[in-house]
Write a protein that binds this DNA or RNA. Structure first.
Lengths: 354, 354
DNA sequence: CTGTTAGCGCATTCAC
DNA sequence: GTGAATGCGCTAACAG
């Protein structure tokens, strides 16, 4: 039963006017110590929370949010993040939000630099960053810090930076989970493999390392006798992919379980299917359209989903809360749930409903 | 870029006043056919959506929502639903919502009748129902229909009724998923078992049947050679439970995988652990505190989670939207995702974050 | 430094 | 059947 008390009430109770209370609530300065103390006391006594609706009504500014993420190709990982972002902007359509995408090519550091440069030049009200290149991101963030522009990370976090908010999964735990699933999905398997992408520049390299560490940790702890092979394959050139994968399979006929520690599991699945190799189980990351197709078909056994849509959604809503209501209170680093998708629960999987 | 246009704009464009537009928007009658048509045309042309904030501000009514669910014991299934409900009410604290719980004992049909009777007598603005007893629920709903009170189902749905909203999982698919997990978790297992609760009255009986059907369907389709035993055990009297479970294990030494098609998996897990029976894997439903403990410990292999908190949350928010904004548009029946929880992804599992 | 005041967009009387 | 007028709680500009 909080929320009855209004700004006028606490003004009266503190013996000041509504304007003063408002100044205090928004750290807008120009308030005497005595007033501030009186008001703050009443504030905490009453547990005042202002009405988000009336607040939004009065506060009729326009906010510009720039989103700096790798190019979002329909049905792929970054597109899910984008979907969540759009969803949030739509949900908050009562507040004027202008969003601008500053896409960059995750394999091209120059495109990243160009994109990041344009951001600080346009001085937006907030930024959402899908960090790929560490040092470029660092530079961008230190500039944003200087300009006092809030920013949120999605997908992953760069060490040593201090974003307003971040949304990502614990990648070591993802690796553990993948290992567990692969182990389960490969009854009697003795040899396992990690396939990772060759030539992906810096692509989420932190993520990949942590995933691998988790994966190895699982097998080291639970079945040190298993052999874990590792090989890189091309994810850009289909012919090369096929050659890489088939060569690996030929040379390692005892491998029965393959983990692809990125979202490109479908590439491997499609190759194996095409060649009629059906006795190998496959686990990978991210519920992209292609992976979805392979799970239904059974050529991928399981996928780890990091709730990319929700990451995007929360990044926007969190930044809006920060901009509108200075809500710094909450947690800053959010570790998302790690979802497990198999053929059975795929049909009903979605990240939000209404 | 919708949402620029306001009520005054469309009033002007239709050559009427704001009041008339409002009457049309809220089906409040007293409006001429010509006006209505003019306005509706402009409305659809502009894709008008009114501002949820200003709307909420003006619309300063108090709403009473009654929640009729089985008694929520801390850390158990219905308590998660309750948590989601509370969370939503808190989130909507800007709108005056009074909630009243009409708990009933899910094993006592008389308590259910009494609880349901009190509901219609108090004529609330909306009702959330966790349906257990089918015919009692039917009666309640037909009364609510008559009184034109919107109601939402959580956890499950009763056939032939027409709730404003419903949130539940597809139980057959849950059964399939449990079967798949149990199959995976029990390498080399030949005999499997379903343990279900004895003496639970009508407890979610529809759910149980559908779950079992899904479970049997999986094994029938994928490994018809496996034997599926079935036995009931007490979930109320610990001594009796123990006797039931141990007797079953003794008589069926070849069973290596047990599915408990309700949330009481921990009871079986604890008994097995106590007796040092470690070679049996166990899969059950719902991430209760007890099940959580058993998953961490490894005495339960996997759990299916039906996002009860989100069910509660969405039931409230959906009803509020219905009450405030007559938003009948959206989908009515919502089938929740089916989450798979194992030891690895348990630590980060949560239903919402910020 | 402080109090007063004019809206924000919408819902709802209340005269016409 | 209709339009003008009032107020919701809060913000921000302005006058002191």
């Amino acid at each position: 039963m909080a929320k009855q008390v209004k700004i006028k009430d606490i003004a009266r109770m503190a013996g000041v006017s509504a304007g003063t209370v408002d100044r205090i609530l928004h750290n807008r300065g120009n308030v005497s110590r005595t007033s501030r103390e009186a008001v703050e006391r009443v504030l905490s006594e009453t547990g005042y929370r202002y009405n988000i609706h009336t607040s939004a009504v009065s506060l009729r500014k326009e906010y510009r949010i720039v989103i700096a993420i790798p190019t979002a190709i329909k049905g792929e990982y970054w597109d899910s993040i984008r979907t969540g972002i759009e969803h949030a902007i739509d949900e908050y359509s009562d507040i004027s939000i202008v969003r601008e995408y500053a896409y960059y090519n995750q394999f091209d550091i120059y495109s990243c630099r160009a994109s990041f440069k344009s951001i600080t030049e346009s001085s937006p009200n907030a930024v959402i960053i899908g960090p790929t290149f560490a040092s470029e991101t660092r530079e961008l963030c230190s500039e944003l810090d200087r300009m006092k522009i809030p920013y949120a990370f999605v997908d992953s976090v760069i060490d040593g930076l201090n974003p307003t908010l971040s949304f990502s999964c614990d990648q070591r735990t993802c690796g553990l989970t993948v290992a567990r699933l692969l182990h389960l999905m490969t009854p009697g398997g003795q040899d396992f493999a990690i396939l990772s992408s060759r030539r992906t520049g810096n692509e989420r390299s932190n993520n990949s390392l942590a995933r691998k560490a988790g994966f190895m940790e699982y097998f080291g702890r639970n079945c040190p006798e298993k052999n874990i092979r590792e090989v890189k394959f091309s994810v850009l050139d289909p012919q090369e992919s096929e050659r890489d994968v088939l060569k690996f399979i030929e040379e390692n006929p005892d491998v029965r379980g393959i983990a692809v520690l990125n979202s490109r599991g479908f590439i491997v699945a499609d190759i194996l299917e095409k060649r009629g190799i059906g006795n190998v189980s496959l686990v990978c990351f991210d519920l992209t359209d292609n992976n979805r197709r392979c799970i239904s078909k059974g050529t991928i056994s399981a996928v780890i989903c990091q709730r990319p849509e929700l990451q995007g959604f929360y990044a926007v809503s969190g930044l809006i809360r920060n901009l509108l209501y200075n809500q710094e209170d909450g947690q800053k680093e959010h570790l998302m749930p790690i979802d497990i998708i198999i053929a059975e629960n795929l049909p009903y999987y979605k990240e939000y409903l209404p």
